[in-house]
Design a protein around this nucleic acid. Structure first.
Lengths: 166, 166
DNA sequence: AGAAGATACTTGACTAATCAACTAATGATC
DNA sequence: GATCATTAGTTGATTAGTCAAGTATCTTCT
């Protein structure tokens, strides 16, 4: 019964559509979470995006991953993946090597300092997420995840169709 | 029963905490929605952030709003509000005027071309949001909004406490 | 009234994101 | 096996975002 987002953004009129209200609510909530998580990551000298890349590379293990494969796995997609990784390489947190079997590809690997940095962030990150979402009960958390998963699957499909209509 | 986000990001291991999974899911879903909405707005020559400012100013009416008041109402907060509005002024979509009673403040108002641009976007925006969220039933939409509202309220509080601990 | 503090921006310097070419390597086809 | 298309990544130019410091104005408190 309480149109929270309307009060929060000091809107005079209610949203014409519930879907639009949900979209605005989703974007604003994500922004709050993003900034909250940022306060955990950024004091360690890397951005959230760089953290994301390191996590992906840790998950990928010894072999590493080709550059664009990393881009595809990022939480927030970015066309600037090359320079993002340039900065991580400058900080000695990742290393790069051209692939021998397919010389177009460049494999990226996380370094020991990179792994150490991630280790230091593991506990604080879990704690931050727990804190941010601790208002929700277990079942609510599960239902939030489910609603978001379905929304994402569907709107991603719409996004793809809109960009490349056949 | 399906850990969608794990498959999607090609993670090998499940998330150690449900809260972390929810946070990642939330951020990624917001990113998809943001890009989807971007495809509607950006062909009109403005960014999503600029669109957000115009919407706020349309809602504010004749009197307009002081610069920092706009920043507070934005969906995604930005410290670069001055230059964001500079760009809108250059495009003649907003006008600015120093307040006479408090000469520190600068009131921003949306111009006629700004209003026209918004009008052109109203229907497509509602449609985009509807499309993006059309997988969810009415009750699910309401419950998503509720879960997000509560999450945001709580984590925003945590964010504030963490930044300025007394 | 004059000083101290708070507000409301603004600016400068720097970093990062975006888009559109561009190169190099590979694969597919005739 | 030359040609065309595709893939993988890079680079350049432009735009946008971030953080710290600065200026002007107002408020409060002696």
């Amino acid at each position: 019964m309480s149109p929270t987002i309307i009060r929060e953004l000091k809107q005079k009129k209610p949203f014409p559509s519930k879907a639009e209200e949900a979209a605005v609510t989703l974007l604003r909530t994500a922004d709050v979470i993003r900034r909250f998580i940022g306060t955990v990551i950024e004091p360690h000298g890397i951005t959230s995006q760089q953290y994301n890349v390191l996590r992906i590379l840790r998950g990928a293990g010894e072999r590493g991953l080709p550059t664009l494969e990393i881009a595809e796995r990022m939480i927030e997609s970015t066309p600037g993946i090359t320079r993002l990784i340039d900065r991580l390489e400058t900080k000695k947190l990742v290393s790069r090597e051209r692939c021998l079997t397919d010389r177009r590809q460049v494999f990226c690997r996380i370094t020991a300092p990179g792994l150490a940095l991630l280790s230091a962030l593991d506990a604080p990150m879990v704690e931050a997420a727990d804190t941010a979402l601790s208002v929700l009960k277990k079942t609510e958390l599960a239902s939030l995840i489910d609603l978001l998963d379905r929304t994402r699957a569907h709107s991603n499909q719409q996004f793809i169709e809109r960009r490349s209509p056949q």
